[in-house]
Write a protein that binds this DNA or RNA. Structure first.
Lengths: 214, 214
DNA sequence: TAGATTGTTAATCGATTAACAATC
DNA sequence: TAGATTGTTAATCGATTAACAATC
């Protein structure tokens, strides 16, 4: 399983394969060919085979792919075969939404802490997790194994907090703040910029309207 | 401003340019060259010039780009120069988080309605917007001009609701549900699949750990 | 064995980068 | 005018698709 030099594009598609395979499993489908899957997913069969062969030969000539096996293997590639401990910094609506989203836990992402600066929130519980003050964060990280931190803080706090997280050995940041974090390159940053997503939507909407006005 | 055939990659970068230009404006910077901007943003100057020239010549030889002017122009390209009316379907944590996010309104995305199926939420207000029942949705859409609907419902309701929205003339869906909506091709769909984002993070985290174990 | 379908190489397409003439 | 920097064409690089030999 040589994971070097696999393009971002391929990696981005893996979770979608995983989702479709999960649905096929639920539907009791045992095997599928790249061709059938390509019709379902509206991508080329060639792309599916190319993508998968970056990681290994999961299929069998004349048969196709075993759904359950492929699902499991992609799960392993995505690291879903072990539990990750996650904390959430910022217990506003978005932070609480993430904490409440039980589906994550099913995939092995366990929320072990929830932090905020607002003293009003101190002691409030979300899904059994008590909100702590950010002043307790360093102490918490020293006593607990945490791999992932979700950053749902406003921009002005986020950069500073990211540095604190890295200094305390956090290896991956799920960044919801609207800024680009500059961190050591061994720290994984995955951005979710909602406003940028909304602007893309707006661009396409706008374009459509313009084209049909003329 | 010929907007035909501009690649998804280019469009995806526009909001980031917009963000950086906004920050430069706040810092009182009047002009910037593609070279200076390329250093700030860590992309090539060539890419910046190519991207912008898809939409027009916004710069001036020997001078660079006027920050304020370019910011305004990109805003127009992104459709941020007029107000969009948005409703949110699903008033759970995520829906409420979106409704609360005042920054969207600043960019011209005005939340005009918030809907849920849960009768417990009926009449509850979020930032002055009263949560309505989804049974009232069709009526609402007949009496109000709405362009965008954010879908923060669970998967099983989302497909059905998307169809209802389209039947009532909604032109763009901001989809947070974990499924691919199949809708007429003139309907804009912008997906935010948080679990897929988290899996990409997990992939990279996992890969990093594996590489350094060997 | 014959048929089906993968894994993989080769061809094509598109996006990014480099180079430079145009021009402010 | 000389210097700077764009707009744009050409070269390169990478990703996607097509084709087909290998093989179950």
């Amino acid at each position: 399983m040589d994971a070097k030099g696999i393009s971002r594009a391929v990696i981005s598609r893996l979770p979608r394969y995983y989702r479709y395979l999960g649905e096929l499993m639920e539907d009791g489908v045992e095997r599928i060919s790249s061709n059938e899957l390509s019709e379902k997913m509206r991508v080329t069969a060639s792309q599916i085979r190319q993508d998968l062969n970056n990681f290994g030969g999961f299929g069998q000539q004349g048969y196709g792919y075993n759904v359950q096996y492929l699902y499991t293997e992609i799960g392993k590639i995505l690291g879903l075969d072990h539990v990750h401990h996650m904390i959430i910094l910022g217990a506003g609506n978005l932070g609480q939404a993430l904490a409440n989203y039980v589906q994550f836990e099913k995939r092995g992402f366990k929320v072990v802490g929830l932090f905020d600066v607002n003293p009003v929130l101190a002691g409030v519980s979300v899904r059994g997790i008590e909100i702590k003050m950010i002043s307790d964060l360093e102490e918490f990280l020293k006593n607990n194994s945490v791999q992932i931190a979700a950053l749902t803080l406003p921009k002005n706090k986020a950069a500073e907090m990211a540095d604190l997280l890295v200094a305390n050995n956090i290896k991956a940041i799920w960044n919801f703040a609207h800024l680009d974090l500059t961190l050591p390159e061994n720290v994984i940053v995955e951005n979710v910029h909602l406003s940028e997503s909304l602007m893309r939507l707006s661009y396409n909407l706008n374009r459509y309207v313009n084209e049909h006005q003329q």
